[in-house]
Amino acid sequence: MKILVPLKRVPDPELKTKIKDGSIDLSGASWVVNPFDEYAVETALRLLENGESGARDGGEVVVVTIGPADAAQQLRSALAMGADRAIRVDGEDKALDSRTVVAVLQAVIAEEKPDLVVMGKQAVDGDANQVGQMLAAKLGWPQATFAASVELPADKATILVGREVDAGVEYKRIPLPGVVTVDLRIVSPKAVKNSVTPDSFAYGDGPRYASLKGIMAAKKKPLAEKKLSDYGATPAPVIVEKGVELPPPRKAGQKVDDIPTLVKKLVEEAKAV
């Protein structure tokens, strides 16, 4: 089984947001793999391995990104976690929108013919949550978004996805090939099941850290360098950023000494109770 994981680099979400000349100031940014995409890599690896022994049960995990030369670092991170192969399509963030990204991924998929695409539900910089669903539409594939759990049966013909929806948890089964986008609980200890890992086995919480051995191995794994034109794509964004503003600061609050004072203020001042 071949799993394709598209991933994006994002500025470190822990850093303070700064604005310069009407756009986000990324001059001093350090870059990381979008956390949800990192969870997608973890999901793909868990789907293909015996969690208890750590042995891969065949299959291949291919990671792909569209980004500048530096984005190769984030691909290497995914390779160090255990992905097998990487593709970097050269492109600048400013020239890309969800439609362009989807067009490139569609062409990559035509070439790679994966059985499953697993990706983050959204990138934590743009927070748009569009690419997975748009891609599924373009491919005519079924989709299962916001996955909190996945279960791959032995025949690998379908995947059962637990999705956190407004009404609770929906269990949706889609035939493969299909697109799954993952939410954060997909990396909880028992969220990913295949027919190989024993049911009793529990992973550590969160995505795995790359081992030293993994980091060394990643340096030798194949990383193909491509251009947008290799996939017949031209950067012609239809979604263009016109400006960015910081949210208005909240009016400074007040500390109150005790609960009776708090309730008095909630009643009389805020009229909230």
Partner: peptide, 8 residues
């Protein structure tokens, strides 16, 4: 497209 909601 073969997708089914098995349960909620």
């Amino acid at each position: 497209l073969g997708a089914v909601v098995e349960r909620i």
